[in-house]
Write a protein that binds this DNA or RNA. Structure first.
Length: 268
DNA sequence: ATGGCCGGTGGAACCGGA
């Protein structure tokens, strides 16, 4: 079962590039982030005609996540538990029925910038950065619940976290950024410490592999990238892992997103 | 060496992104 994640930066803007990549890559399941569309406006017919079931969790203008699947989906839920007042569409779950049933969480973790700092230089957990850290604590609680099921679980999406220095071309440039601050990496590490496996790193230990290149300052041409899109696997899913890859070449295509697709292949 | 963008909204600049 090939399970991909792709921050498309707007479904309307990617109306040609996304189907073109699907034709080539042919994933069984795709978690999309930043669809930037309400559910009613999502062009589901295009993907249904390609054999995909379509489940969206959108909102106007910003954010928005979706799951496309060639395999049956069960128990679809929308929204990250833990804050009924949170109106940002960043979390969707479904169970995909292959030769094994796999619970999949598609997520768009908050960016968290700009960060405010106190007089000692410590980041303040308020505003957008506070929202990011609170959101990660809510995700931690949700994952803890799902792990008690002891079933294959895949949490994939745009984590907006650079896990380690080797995941950025210029780590020093990110020192005070919400994507790389120690508090952000610690929260990501706490997720791993629940027993989750970073699928790409389980297959490839080399530095210099990125999933995002800014549109600005010639970042792509200079390979000034960061690795911020991830698949985290429960032990039962990690045992099924056959492959994990980044579709880097998509960034060089026509009208690309600033992120590229990443995917795993599970024996399921 | 440095700096450069893009998408959505709404119909001009601005916000948000990372």
């Amino acid at each position: 079962m090939k399970i991909a994640s792709f921050n498309i930066n707007g479904i309307k803007a990617r109306i040609e590039a996304l189907p073109a990549w699907l034709q080539t890559a042919n994933p069984d399941v795709v978690c999309l982030q930043e669809i930037k569309s309400v559910d009613e406006a999502f062009p589901r017919d295009i993907f249904e005609s390609m054999g995909y079931r379509v489940e969206t969790h959108g909102q106007k203008s910003f954010n928005g996540v979706a799951i496309l699947s060639k395999l049956p989906l069960e128990d679809v839920t929308r929204g990250l538990p833990g804050d009924a007042s949170d109106e940002q569409a960043r979390w969707i779950e479904a169970t995909v029925i292959g030769t094994r049933a796999i619970r999949i969480c598609g997520l768009y973790l908050p960016n968290g910038n700009p960060v405010e700092f106190d007089s000692t230089g410590a980041p303040i957990s308020a505003g957008k950065y506070g929202y990011k850290l609170n959101w990660m604590a809510r995700m931690q609680a949700r994952v803890e619940t799902l792990l008690t099921l002891e079933e294959p679980l895949v949490c994939c999406g745009d984590y907006n976290i650079i896990p380690q220095a080797e995941d950025a071309a210029k780590p020093e440039a990110w020192a005070k950024d919400a994507l790389y601050l120690l508090q952000s990496r610690e929260a990501f590490r706490r997720l791993l410490n629940l027993g989750l496996t970073d699928a790409f790193r389980a297959r490839n230990a080399a530095p210099g592999h990125y999933t995002f290149w800014d549109y600005q300052a010639g970042a792509w041409d200079r390979n000034n990238g960061i690795r911020i899109d991830h698949h985290l696997l429960s032990p039962q899913a990690a045992d099924l892992l056959r492959d994990a890859q980044i579709d880097k070449q998509v960034r060089a295509g026509d009208k690309p997103s600033d992120h590229v697709p990443i995917w795993i292949d599970l024996n399921a």
